[in-house]
Design a protein around this nucleic acid. Sequence first.
DNA 1: CTCCGATTACTCGTCCTAGAGTATCCACAC
DNA 2: GTGTGGATACTCTAGGACGAGTAATCGGAG
Lengths: 227, 227
Amino acid sequence: MARRRVSNPLALAVLSCLTERAMHPYEMSTTLRQRGKEISIRLNYGSLYAVVESLAKHGLIRARGTTREGRRPERTVYEITEAGAAEFEDWLAELLSTPVREFSSLEAGLSLMAGLPPDDVGMLLTRRTYALRAELGALDSMQTQAAEQSLPELFLVENRLRRALLQAELDFVTDLATRIQDGSYPGVKLWRRIHDLRGEGVSFEEISADPVRYLGEEGRFFQTSQK
Amino acid sequence: MARRRVSNPLALAVLSCLTERAMHPYEMSTTLRQRGKEISIRLNYGSLYAVVESLAKHGLIRARGTTREGRRPERTVYEITEAGAAEFEDWLAELLSTPVREFSSLEAGLSLMAGLPPDDVGMLLTRRTYALRAELGALDSMQTQAAEQSLPELFLVENRLRRALLQAELDFVTDLATRIQDGSYPGVKLWRRIHDLRGEGVSFEEISADPVRYLGEEGRFFQTSQK
DNA sequence: CTCCGATTACTCGTCCTAGAGTATCCACAC
DNA sequence: GTGTGGATACTCTAGGACGAGTAATCGGAG
C-alpha cells in the first residue's frame, strides 16, 4: 500500500464519490456520512482536504471550477479523471484481494498481558466480553433498521464482516478468560508464580538469572528463550 | 486512547521492557524483536526514539545515565519510574478490557465494493481466500515451531487471536464470494444491472435520477436512500 | 592484513493526521 | 428584532509516524 501515490483510504472513498458525479469536498463528507461509510473509513476534515489536494496534484481528480454563494467560503467542485478511475479500480481490487498485516490493540494487549497477574487478566477479559456483546447487539439493531428501509444487504456488507469478526473475538476472549481463570491454559501456573514472587519482592532479574531455582523445571525454557 | 499522554502502543512495549530491567532503546528493539512482539506492535526506530523521549518527558521513565564504548554513539540507559509502572498497568488493563473501533482495509474495500462489477468482486474475493489460507498455514507452522522449543502457549497468545480472526475472515469471505458468484446474495442482480447500464454508457447520475425506469421496482430504495 | 558484510546505535527530514477553530448563513423561538 | 443552535464550508498547525541514511565497530574470508 505504500507504493500508492495517495495512501489514505479516504482517498479511495473520494474517488468512489466522484465516480458517481462531480462534487465539492464538503459534499463528499456528507455523502459518505449519510451512507454510513464513515464507520468503515476514517473521515475528518483535515485529512479530507489534504487528500483531495493530493489527488488533484497527482492528476487523479481535477477541479472543475469554483462557485460562491453570498459571502460564504468558496466551493471547489472536483471531477474524476481517467487516471483516477483506473486508480480507483486498481486500488479497490487490491484491497479486496490482498490481505494486509494490521495491528489491533487487543493483539498488542495480549502480547504483553504477562505483565499483569493472571487473575487480573481473567477479570479484564471477562469485562471485555460484556462490552463485545453490547457492540454485537448494537450492530444487529442497526442491521434490522436497515432491513426495514429495504436497503439491499449488499450496501452494508461491511457491517456483516464486522459482526463476524466481533463474534470471533468474543468466542476467543470468552474461552481464553475461562481457561485463565480455571488454570487450564498452559503456562498459567508459571505466570502466577512469577507474579507471586514479585509480590514477595523478588525482582524479575533475579528470577531470570536462575529460573530453575525459582520456578522449578518448568522455568527451564527461560534459558533457551533468553537467546 | 487519545487521553494518554503517550498514545503509541510501542510506548507500552517500552514500559513492558523496562518493567523487567533497565535498558537502552536499541536493546529494547532487539528484545522485542527476538520475542516476536514486533509482529503485534509496530516497531521502527524513528518512533522508538521519539516515544522513549516522550515517556521521559512525562516522567514515566528516566535516564539512568549514558555509557559509551570507544567512539560509538552514546547509549542512554533508561529505567521505569513508579508513575510509569502505574501507567503500564492501567494502560494494559484498558487495552484488554475495552474494545476500540478499528479500521481494517478489507472493511474499507467491502464498503466501496459496489464500485466494481459483481463478477470482478467475486473473483477478487476468491483470490483473497487463497492468500488467507496461506497465511493460516504460515501461522500454524510458526506455532508448531514454538511448541517444539517448549515455549508455553501463553507467550504467544496473540498468535492464537490472529489465527481465530483470520479463520473468521476466511469463512466470511468464502461465503460472500460464493454467494456473489451464484447470485444468491441479496442485491446482486441490481448491482450487476447498474454496471451493465454503465457499460452501455448510461451515467450513474441518469440512473439515480430515475431509478425505477432503469432498475424496476427494486430500484425504488434509491429515492429514500438519497436522503 | 585488509576488505566486506553484518551488527550496533541512533538521527533527520518529510510527509501525514487529527481535530479544534473560524466564519457565514438560516430557521425558529421568545 | 435578537438570541441560539445547527448546518455549511473550509483552514491551520502542532504533533506523529516513517524509514532511509549515517557512522562506528566487529568477525571472518581470502
